[in-house]
Amino acid sequence: MEEVIFGSNIMQLFIALILVSTFMILGSTRLYSCVRAFGIQSFLLACVATVVGISTGKIDLYIVALLTLIIKAAVIPYIFIYIIREIKVKREIDLYVGISPSLIIGGILVVISYYLIRSISVITELSSFALSASMSLVSIGLFIMISRKKAIMQMLGILIMENGLFLGAISLTNGMPLLVELGIFFDVLIGVLIMGILIFRINKTFETIDTDMLKNLIG
Protein backbone atom coordinates (compact mmCIF):
# COMPACT_ATOMS: atom_id res chain seq x y z
CA MET A 1 0.00 0.00 0.00
CA GLU A 2 2.66 2.42 1.08
CA GLU A 3 4.68 1.92 -2.07
CA VAL A 4 1.72 2.72 -4.27
CA ILE A 5 1.07 6.03 -2.52
CA PHE A 6 4.59 7.33 -2.34
CA GLY A 7 5.57 6.16 -5.77
CA SER A 8 2.78 8.09 -7.37
CA ASN A 9 3.81 11.03 -9.48
CA ILE A 10 1.72 13.66 -7.78
CA MET A 11 3.13 12.78 -4.39
CA GLN A 12 6.70 13.10 -5.64
CA LEU A 13 5.76 16.42 -7.16
CA PHE A 14 4.48 17.80 -3.85
CA ILE A 15 7.51 16.54 -1.97
CA ALA A 16 9.88 18.10 -4.51
CA LEU A 17 7.98 21.37 -4.20
CA ILE A 18 8.31 21.20 -0.41
CA LEU A 19 12.06 20.89 -0.87
CA VAL A 20 11.99 23.87 -3.25
CA SER A 21 10.08 25.98 -0.71
CA THR A 22 12.69 25.10 1.91
CA PHE A 23 15.36 26.35 -0.46
CA MET A 24 13.30 29.49 -1.00
CA ILE A 25 13.61 30.15 2.75
CA LEU A 26 17.34 29.43 2.60
CA GLY A 27 17.84 31.65 -0.41
CA SER A 28 15.96 34.80 0.48
CA THR A 29 17.12 37.73 2.57
CA ARG A 30 13.72 39.23 3.33
CA LEU A 31 11.72 38.29 6.39
CA TYR A 32 8.39 38.53 4.58
CA SER A 33 9.42 36.22 1.74
CA CYS A 34 10.75 33.70 4.28
CA VAL A 35 7.38 33.73 6.06
CA ARG A 36 5.57 33.44 2.73
CA ALA A 37 7.72 30.48 1.71
CA PHE A 38 6.96 28.83 5.05
CA GLY A 39 3.23 29.32 4.37
CA ILE A 40 3.63 27.71 0.94
CA GLN A 41 5.52 24.82 2.50
CA SER A 42 2.75 24.20 5.02
CA PHE A 43 0.13 24.41 2.29
CA LEU A 44 2.05 21.76 0.32
CA LEU A 45 2.20 19.60 3.46
CA ALA A 46 -1.57 19.84 3.69
CA CYS A 47 -1.73 18.73 0.04
CA VAL A 48 0.47 15.73 0.86
CA ALA A 49 -1.78 14.80 3.77
CA THR A 50 -4.82 15.06 1.52
CA VAL A 51 -3.27 12.86 -1.16
CA VAL A 52 -2.37 10.22 1.45
CA GLY A 53 -5.89 10.57 2.85
CA ILE A 54 -7.47 9.99 -0.55
CA SER A 55 -5.35 6.95 -1.32
CA THR A 56 -5.70 5.29 2.10
CA GLY A 57 -9.31 6.36 2.69
CA LYS A 58 -8.64 7.54 6.25
CA ILE A 59 -10.92 10.39 7.34
CA ASP A 60 -8.43 11.40 10.06
CA LEU A 61 -6.01 12.61 7.44
CA TYR A 62 -8.51 15.08 5.99
CA ILE A 63 -8.87 16.64 9.44
CA VAL A 64 -5.10 16.72 9.80
CA ALA A 65 -4.78 18.37 6.38
CA LEU A 66 -7.43 20.95 7.30
CA LEU A 67 -5.69 21.69 10.61
CA THR A 68 -2.35 22.06 8.83
CA LEU A 69 -3.94 24.44 6.40
CA ILE A 70 -5.54 26.58 9.11
CA ILE A 71 -2.82 26.56 11.76
CA LYS A 72 0.43 26.27 9.84
CA ALA A 73 -0.45 27.94 6.55
CA ALA A 74 -2.61 30.76 7.92
CA VAL A 75 -2.44 31.39 11.69
CA ILE A 76 1.31 30.95 12.25
CA PRO A 77 2.37 33.10 9.25
CA TYR A 78 -0.12 35.71 10.52
CA ILE A 79 1.51 35.63 13.98
CA PHE A 80 4.91 36.10 12.31
CA ILE A 81 3.72 39.07 10.29
CA TYR A 82 2.10 40.52 13.41
CA ILE A 83 5.40 40.24 15.33
CA ILE A 84 7.40 41.73 12.46
CA ARG A 85 4.98 44.64 12.23
CA GLU A 86 4.68 45.25 15.97
CA ILE A 87 8.36 45.39 16.83
CA LYS A 88 9.20 47.28 13.62
CA VAL A 89 12.16 45.06 12.92
CA LYS A 90 14.45 45.67 9.94
CA ARG A 91 13.02 43.69 7.03
CA GLU A 92 16.33 42.16 5.97
CA ILE A 93 17.74 39.20 7.87
CA ASP A 94 21.35 39.13 9.03
CA LEU A 95 23.29 35.98 8.40
CA TYR A 96 26.36 34.27 9.76
CA VAL A 97 26.64 32.32 6.49
CA GLY A 98 26.02 34.04 3.14
CA ILE A 99 23.20 33.11 0.76
CA SER A 100 25.24 31.14 -1.78
CA PRO A 101 27.15 29.10 0.83
CA SER A 102 23.84 28.46 2.65
CA LEU A 103 22.31 27.08 -0.54
CA ILE A 104 25.32 24.86 -1.14
CA ILE A 105 25.26 23.62 2.46
CA GLY A 106 21.53 22.96 2.02
CA GLY A 107 22.28 20.83 -1.04
CA ILE A 108 24.94 18.90 0.84
CA LEU A 109 22.49 18.30 3.69
CA VAL A 110 19.96 16.85 1.22
CA VAL A 111 22.57 14.42 -0.09
CA ILE A 112 23.68 13.44 3.41
CA SER A 113 20.11 12.78 4.49
CA TYR A 114 19.53 10.69 1.40
CA TYR A 115 22.53 8.51 2.24
CA LEU A 116 21.50 8.27 5.88
CA ILE A 117 17.99 7.18 4.91
CA ARG A 118 19.28 4.72 2.33
CA SER A 119 21.31 2.92 4.96
CA ILE A 120 18.08 1.98 6.77
CA SER A 121 17.25 -1.31 5.12
CA VAL A 122 13.59 -1.42 6.15
CA ILE A 123 12.63 1.50 3.93
CA THR A 124 11.43 0.69 0.43
CA GLU A 125 13.01 2.52 -2.47
CA LEU A 126 9.89 4.49 -3.23
CA SER A 127 9.08 5.95 0.16
CA SER A 128 12.72 6.83 0.63
CA PHE A 129 12.12 10.06 -1.33
CA ALA A 130 9.57 11.25 1.22
CA LEU A 131 11.72 10.18 4.13
CA SER A 132 14.92 11.74 2.86
CA ALA A 133 12.97 14.93 2.11
CA SER A 134 11.72 14.95 5.71
CA MET A 135 15.21 14.28 7.00
CA SER A 136 16.61 17.13 4.91
CA LEU A 137 13.86 19.45 6.15
CA VAL A 138 14.88 18.68 9.72
CA SER A 139 18.56 19.27 9.04
CA ILE A 140 17.98 22.42 6.96
CA GLY A 141 15.69 23.76 9.71
CA LEU A 142 18.48 23.20 12.20
CA PHE A 143 20.94 24.89 9.86
CA ILE A 144 18.64 27.91 9.52
CA MET A 145 18.44 28.12 13.30
CA ILE A 146 22.21 28.25 13.73
CA SER A 147 23.09 30.39 10.71
CA ARG A 148 20.58 33.25 11.05
CA LYS A 149 20.91 36.01 13.60
CA LYS A 150 17.30 37.14 13.97
CA ALA A 151 15.27 35.44 16.69
CA ILE A 152 12.34 35.24 14.25
CA MET A 153 14.39 33.10 11.90
CA GLN A 154 15.21 30.73 14.73
CA MET A 155 11.51 30.38 15.38
CA LEU A 156 11.00 29.70 11.67
CA GLY A 157 13.80 27.13 11.71
CA ILE A 158 12.17 25.10 14.46
CA LEU A 159 8.87 25.19 12.58
CA ILE A 160 10.60 23.88 9.45
CA MET A 161 12.02 21.05 11.56
CA GLU A 162 8.51 20.35 12.81
CA ASN A 163 7.20 20.27 9.24
CA GLY A 164 9.94 17.78 8.38
CA LEU A 165 8.90 15.55 11.28
CA PHE A 166 5.28 15.79 10.16
CA LEU A 167 6.24 14.70 6.64
CA GLY A 168 8.31 11.85 8.06
CA ALA A 169 5.46 10.72 10.31
CA ILE A 170 2.97 10.71 7.43
CA SER A 171 5.29 8.86 5.11
CA LEU A 172 6.15 6.20 7.70
CA THR A 173 2.76 5.54 9.26
CA ASN A 174 0.26 6.77 6.65
CA GLY A 175 -1.20 9.04 9.31
CA MET A 176 -0.74 8.85 13.07
CA PRO A 177 -3.73 8.57 15.42
CA LEU A 178 -5.77 11.76 15.39
CA LEU A 179 -5.24 12.34 19.11
CA VAL A 180 -1.46 12.44 18.66
CA GLU A 181 -1.76 14.82 15.74
CA LEU A 182 -4.07 17.12 17.69
CA GLY A 183 -1.60 17.15 20.57
CA ILE A 184 1.23 18.09 18.21
CA PHE A 185 -0.78 20.89 16.61
CA PHE A 186 -1.65 22.30 20.01
CA ASP A 187 2.01 22.08 21.05
CA VAL A 188 3.15 23.90 17.92
CA LEU A 189 0.61 26.66 18.32
CA ILE A 190 1.43 27.20 22.00
CA GLY A 191 5.13 26.99 21.16
CA VAL A 192 4.80 29.72 18.55
CA LEU A 193 2.85 31.92 20.96
CA ILE A 194 5.45 31.45 23.71
CA MET A 195 8.30 32.12 21.30
CA GLY A 196 6.46 35.20 20.06
CA ILE A 197 6.14 36.51 23.63
CA LEU A 198 9.80 35.69 24.21
CA ILE A 199 10.76 37.69 21.11
CA PHE A 200 8.74 40.64 22.43
CA ARG A 201 10.58 40.36 25.75
CA ILE A 202 13.98 40.17 24.03
CA ASN A 203 13.05 43.20 21.98
CA LYS A 204 11.96 45.12 25.09
CA THR A 205 15.10 44.32 27.08
CA PHE A 206 17.75 44.57 24.38
CA GLU A 207 15.97 46.79 21.84
CA THR A 208 16.92 44.31 19.12
CA ILE A 209 16.02 40.75 18.22
CA ASP A 210 19.48 40.06 16.90
CA THR A 211 20.61 37.07 18.98
CA ASP A 212 24.20 38.12 18.43
CA MET A 213 23.56 41.07 20.74
CA LEU A 214 22.34 38.91 23.61
CA LYS A 215 25.92 38.50 24.76
CA ASN A 216 26.11 42.20 25.67
CA LEU A 217 25.77 43.07 29.33
CA ILE A 218 22.84 45.24 30.28
CA GLY A 219 23.51 47.43 33.31
Partner: peptide, 8 residues
Protein backbone atom coordinates in the same frame (compact mmCIF):
# COMPACT_ATOMS: atom_id res chain seq x y z
CA UNK B 1 22.81 34.33 -5.30
CA UNK B 2 20.30 34.06 -8.14
CA UNK B 3 22.52 31.79 -10.19
CA UNK B 4 23.34 29.60 -7.21
CA UNK B 5 19.59 29.14 -6.73
CA UNK B 6 19.52 27.84 -10.29
CA UNK B 7 22.57 25.65 -9.67
CA UNK B 8 20.98 24.30 -6.49
Amino acid sequence: DLLSVSLM
